[in-house]
């Protein structure tokens, strides 16, 4: 009797967890693995992937989401952050960077909204140079202050007299890759017609 009871208990406990896994992970995995990469979505280049690693390393995802909400749910559409995101937008994303926080704005289409390399460089070096009220941290370790820049190096146009006399601020390869990645964030192409999984647009 006691044995049967224990068996039922452990069986029940296992079953509840596996059911939840099947519903929330297993079945969606089967359904969504059929999603094809849409036309217009390009694979990340090696440099963009390196930039994406920097994005992860510095924890950008803790303040910036990469998912645009549909009309009627929040103000993403009014803020012109791009069309609502669909599963096909993420086929090349691993790990996913959907994010859960918007201490800063959504970045799903930042490559469309802000195309200026110099803006991004200054913004990473010290966000308050370009957005006075920003609460974003600075990332000085992505830059180097030195006497002369190499031939291929990007020199920042830092306003004011912050840089010591006779020195220049140049972007490290990490900063260049990160900006490259940010500029690649563009999901302005048309969403694939009839998303297999979304019944919203019917």
């Amino acid at each position: 009797m006691m044995f049967i009871r224990s068996f039922v208990f452990f069986f029940g406990v296992l079953a509840t967890l596996l059911l939840g896994w099947a519903a929330l992970v297993g079945i969606p995995d089967i359904m969504i693995s059929e999603v094809k990469p849409p036309e217009g979505l390009e694979r990340y280049t090696a440099e963009e992937l390196f930039g994406r690693q920097i994005y992860i390393r510095e924890g950008c995802l803790y303040c910036h989401s990469q998912q645009v909400r549909p009309e009627g749910f929040g103000a993403d559409q009014d803020r012109l952050w791009g069309r609502p995101s669909v599963p096909a937008d993420y086929v090349y994303d691993r790990p996913h960077l959907l994010g859960t926080m918007r201490t800063g704005p959504d970045l799903m289409n930042i490559g469309v909204r802000q195309t200026s390399v110099s803006w991004h460089m200054l913004h990473l070096y010290d966000p308050r140079l370009v957005v006075e009220e920003s609460t974003m941290p600075p990332y000085p370790w992505l830059f180097e202050v030195k006497r002369t820049a190499g031939p291929d190096e990007y020199i920042l146009d830092v306003p004011g007299n912050r840089v010591p006399e006779g020195k220049v601020v140049v972007a490290t390869p990490e900063a260049e890759a990160l900006v490259e990645y940010l500029l690649s964030l563009d999901r302005s192409f048309d969403a694939p017609q009839r998303e297999v999984t979304n019944d919203d647009d019917e």
Binding site: W21, L24, V25, P28, I32, Y90, V91, D93, L98
Partner: peptide, 24 residues
Amino acid sequence: VWFPLLYLTANFGHYQGVVEAGMN
């Protein structure tokens, strides 16, 4: 019983795109 199963599925499963977000 639950914790090891959950932890192993999450740490060693392979998923893509939004399914990974769901798993996460």
